[in-house]
Nucleic acid binder design. Sequence first.
DNA 1: TGCTCGATTACCT
DNA 2: GGTAATCGAGCAA
Length: 251
Amino acid sequence: MPDHDQRALLAREFFDRPATEVAPDLLGCVLWHDSPAGIVAARLVEVEAYRGGMDAASHAFRGPTARNAVMFGPPGHAYVYFSYGMHYCVNVVCQAPGRGEAVLLRAGAVVEGAMLARQRRYGVPAASGTDAGGTSATGGGTGGAAAGPAGPDAGNGSRGRQRELDLARGPGRLCQALAIDRSLDGAHVCAPSGPLGIGPAQVDQSQADSAAIIRTGPRVGISKAVELPWRYWIAGDGHVSGYRPSKPRSS
DNA sequence: TGCTCGATTACCT
DNA sequence: GGTAATCGAGCAA
């Protein structure tokens, strides 16, 4: 049933470049997780580049530790960490081993397995019955999902639409929707047999148009190197999370 | 050994 | 729009 061995995957060489080059190229690509419960896939609409030892905001800035060891390994592997005591965030390692560069995957639009993603996020089977994307039941596979954000909330009001946009809007939500946790730390996203993968951007005309408009700006929630415009997102896409500067802790 | 902070989110006003 | 929640990593003593 998992048709992911037929899915196109990005080559390892794709990630063997500076994170600031990989990050914009990842926009429009599809991240998927094939779990026992089913497949959920999301088209990436927002990412951030972290450049290891030369980037004070990077987890790798201070050198390798047990937590960030994966960042210093070969490119094309997932670095998953636990944040704020309750959320997971997922990165993809870039550059040759030892560099510590990675791209944080911040937000996506669920294009497959939306029903399962809703279940994970909101604990309900489905808001409305129009979604055929539950688990791997999507007949058309990735291609059929290319229609964009229309289908799932048909018949719902703006509230339902917002919920749909919020499914994977933000790094913590993305991980929750795709059931990504520390067990996937180090997973190879270029391996055909692995549970986690990233496929190339779909060459659909409407998406090609939107993917052409890539914006850059300061990264979210960091207190160091805030001036670096290493956040990349698809302009006008409702699945992009809003910019929030780092908030100093209240005493 | 203990303390502080964090690549966030959900909920309350 | 503002704030509490929550826990692991990293640093200092």
